Simulated scan of single mutants.
Amino acid sequence: MSKSDTILSAKSLRYFLQLIETMNYTQAAQILGITQPALTQQVKKLERAIGAPLFGQMGKKLYLTEAGAAAIELLNTINGVISDIQEYTQSDKGNISIGILESVHVDLFYQFLRYFNKKYPEVTFTVDYFDRKELWHRLDSNMIDMAIMYMPDTTNKTGANFRHQYNHRDICPEHIVVLTHKDNVEAGGTYSVTRFGNRKWVAYPENYYLSRLMRLNFSKKIDLVTPFKIASTKEMIKIAENTDLDTYVDQTYYEAHKDEINLTPVYIKNMPEFTTACVYRRGKLDVPRMKKLLTELQIFLDNNLDRNHNFSKLLSEEIK
């Protein structure tokens, strides 16, 4: 028998844990149904294998030595690992970590999380917002289970690497909606960028996805002059409404808040198409709770999305 087998034998560990609980050899032996010498022998066996005493004695009272305290910490770590492994195999328990790209608006997704939590209350969620670089870092490092982001996105991925490492499924198609003060355009109309040549803008910071799309489209014809760059969509619109500046948001945000917005919504010709998508590492579908989450999300979207909004399905047949 190896030294590690001796240290971690089920009997020795059970006796050790019981003695920790009572800190009394007589009581621990009675609970275990053995004699006190037999208990003492097992503890001494552990101490010889470890090479240090686990308990000291002051008068009649036992106390844990530094080695004993370290052993407890090790056992807690082992128990934590066992718990994580057990959660990995369960579909209705455990934590799912989700990262969301800044400026993506996913009200419907939060509705789904509330629905899922009622159905599976022992599955918990950690949700946070990141810029594109940090979001990809966390996906690559397996620090998050899935991401909600705009696609296509090649921040740090070649097409080949993306296909080999990740799955992504579109949640909904998106468009940029320009919110303007211009009085010679019609709500919902589509116009050339040259119609906005003399306009100034309040916009997202330059590293934001929508700002990049706007710059790519406008730079071919006119300069995109942006006196204000703000990360908050709500504040961006508020500033636009209280100045003569125009702004822009994605279609999902506009549809959710159009009754609150006092600017004219229009579209720009030849603006690149993009989608809001769910991105996750290949292999995540091997985790039962992730497969259940994605399957339930597909069902939820099928039942709740506005058919007229032409949303695409989230998942393919691979998770069925």
Score class of each variant (00 low, 15 high):
E66P: 01
H257T: 14
E206A: 10
G80K: 11
S141A: 15
Y110D: 12
S12Y: 07
S83Y: 08
K269V: 09
Q111P: 05
G80H: 07
A29V: 02
T247C: 13
V225E: 11
V202D: 00
T40N: 12
T77D: 11
H181K: 12
Y254P: 06
N76P: 00
D84T: 07
L13A: 07
R215F: 05
L245Y: 14
F125I: 08
A240M: 05
T233D: 06
K269P: 01
D131W: 06
K229Y: 01
E134S: 11
V123E: 02
L179Q: 03
S9Y: 09
M58E: 15
N24I: 05
Q298Y: 06
H175L: 13
E317N: 07
K258V: 09
T276S: 08
K93M: 13
T6Q: 14
G56Y: 05
L139K: 03
P37Q: 11
H105L: 07
I85V: 14
R138H: 11
L213V: 04
M146A: 11
N76Y: 07
L301N: 10
M214H: 01
Y129I: 10
T180M: 01
D140I: 11
S2H: 06
D223C: 01
D140A: 15
G56T: 11
E318D: 13
G188A: 15
Q251E: 15
T40W: 00
L294S: 02
Q251K: 14
N308W: 01
K3W: 05
L285F: 05
E235H: 11
N79A: 14
V185N: 05
P265G: 05
A67Q: 00
A52E: 06
F125T: 00
L17I: 13
C172A: 15
G51Y: 05
D145H: 08
T154M: 10
D153M: 08
V193M: 05
A70T: 04
F116T: 07
E235M: 12
Y254C: 09
V81N: 05
E21D: 09
D107W: 05
I98V: 15
R14I: 07
L101I: 10
N304P: 00
P53S: 15
V127I: 13
L297H: 03
K269S: 14
V185T: 06
D250Y: 10
S97M: 14
I148C: 07
K284Y: 04
M290R: 01
V178T: 08
Y166Q: 11
Y253L: 12
M151T: 12
P37I: 12
